[in-house]
Amino acid sequence: MDSVSDYWNDRALLEWQVELGATDAIQDTPIDRYALEAVKPTPKPAVPKDGPPPIPEKVQVDPVAIAQAAATAAVDLDGLAAAMQAFEHCELKRGARNFVFCDGQCGARVMIVGEAPGREEDRAGKPFVGRAGQLLDRMLAAIDLARDHAKLSRAVYITNVMPWRPPSNRAPEPAEIAMMLPFLERHITLADPDIVVLMGNTPCQALLGRTGITRLRGHWTEVLGKPCLPMFHPAYLLRNPAAKREAWADLLALNARLRD
Rank of each mutant, 00 (worst) to 15 (best):
D28R: 14
A253I: 00
D148E: 07
D24K: 11
V47D: 07
C204F: 08
A12G: 08
Q105Y: 01
P174S: 01
P227H: 02
P234T: 12
L216Q: 13
P182E: 11
N160K: 05
D78S: 13
E57G: 13
H219Q: 14
R147V: 00
Q27R: 15
A69N: 08
D250E: 15
V75C: 02
M231W: 03
A141W: 02
L14F: 15
I112A: 04
R97L: 07
P172E: 03
P230S: 06
I158S: 00
P163T: 06
D137Q: 05
A83E: 07
W248A: 15
S5Y: 09
M139G: 00
L20F: 02
L13A: 10
R97A: 09
C102V: 00
P54A: 15
V75W: 00
M1F: 05
M84I: 10
D144A: 08
M111V: 14
D192Y: 02
V100W: 08
D250P: 07
A25M: 12
W220I: 00
D62C: 08
G118N: 11
T72K: 10
V4P: 00
D103W: 07
R11S: 10
G21C: 07
M162Y: 08
T211R: 13
A142K: 09
V59M: 15
L216C: 05
A171K: 10
L145Y: 00
A146C: 04
G79H: 07
E120N: 08
D62R: 13
V129D: 02
L36G: 06
M179I: 09
P30Q: 10
A69V: 10
H233R: 06
S3V: 10
A175H: 12
G133A: 04
R33D: 07
K49T: 11
A256K: 11
Q105L: 05
E120F: 05
S168D: 03
V61N: 06
G118T: 05
Y7A: 12
F183G: 04
V75F: 01
V39H: 13
G104K: 09
E176N: 05
H219Y: 11
L36Q: 14
A38R: 15
V161N: 10
R165W: 09
E246A: 10
L251F: 09
L254F: 11
R109G: 02
N240D: 04
G218T: 06
G130Y: 09
